[in-house]
Amino acid sequence: MATPLSLKELSKKELLLTAGHRMCSGCGAPPVVKMVLLASDYPVVASNATGCLEVSTCISEYTAWKIPWIHNAFENAAATLSGVETMYRSLKKQGKIDKEIKFIAFGGDGGTYDIGFQSLSGAMERGHDMLYICYDNGAYMNTGIQRSSATPLGADTTTCPAGSVVPGKLQERKDLTKIMAAHGIPYVAQASPSHWSDLMKKVRKALEIKGPKFMNIISPCNRGWRSAANDAILLSRLAVETCYWPLYEIENGVTRVTVKPKEKKPLVDFLKPQGRFKHLFAPENEWLLKKAQDDVNAYWERLLKEEEFTKSEEVPKEQ
């Protein structure tokens, strides 16, 4: 019997990422990891790409992980976990292990969208029974806020600093969630720690599906976003409410938008509290602000159409 996804029941479960880790105060990643692990009623073995989460949670003889955990390198969390999962299958087949174990990889956007993309794509194509979780904070935060392919349009980073000639990042984000869906894997989703129940339901659903699964979870970084340390959940909520970060899932090719804001807020509500977008509010960058809003609108419209369009592909559930 699965633990009900109620705060009362969940509060009785042990947190598998302990306090005392060295992530920055107000970082979005630890709550994301805690929610992911709380959602599972199965034992989990995790791999972790090099990055903030990894360097801050296992230092010398101290580890914050109460589950088996492996960090290998920056670009190979997926390949590494594919090895762990394969050994599990081998030993299970030989009767040397009988427990049901789930496998989850954690990587930041640098280790997932960019340097680890090939490793991720390969592991998904090979069909390993694992869930890959990207905690997306939109830049290489661990090395000091350098641009990644997940950095939003117009953002100021240390490698695309907003200057008098270049107004921050000039390219749009890579749409990794859709790229993962294009792999034809059984489950892909986007989630946000602001919508914990939605996030945990998706994790739970993913873990029940055999095969490769991918989830992209927005994870505010107050150092990189130049925002208040206590605004991580607020900002991730605004990302959802402005439709900058739509909450949806694609299950066997069927798209479902899981949270539809009652009233779609203007993108500036999400951008304004973040210092990385400050320069966009200067008169000469108005075009960029407009483009950012237009992009969000277009994407949201397309997503709703996609939901409508793929509905017909939905296999009716047996009564």
Binding site: C58, I67, P68
Partner: peptide
């Protein structure tokens, strides 16, 4: 790593 009763961390 697969000994879930005795969790270990690899790669500190």
């Amino acid at each position: 790593l697969l000994d879930i009763e005795h969790p270990v961390s690899y790669g500190p």
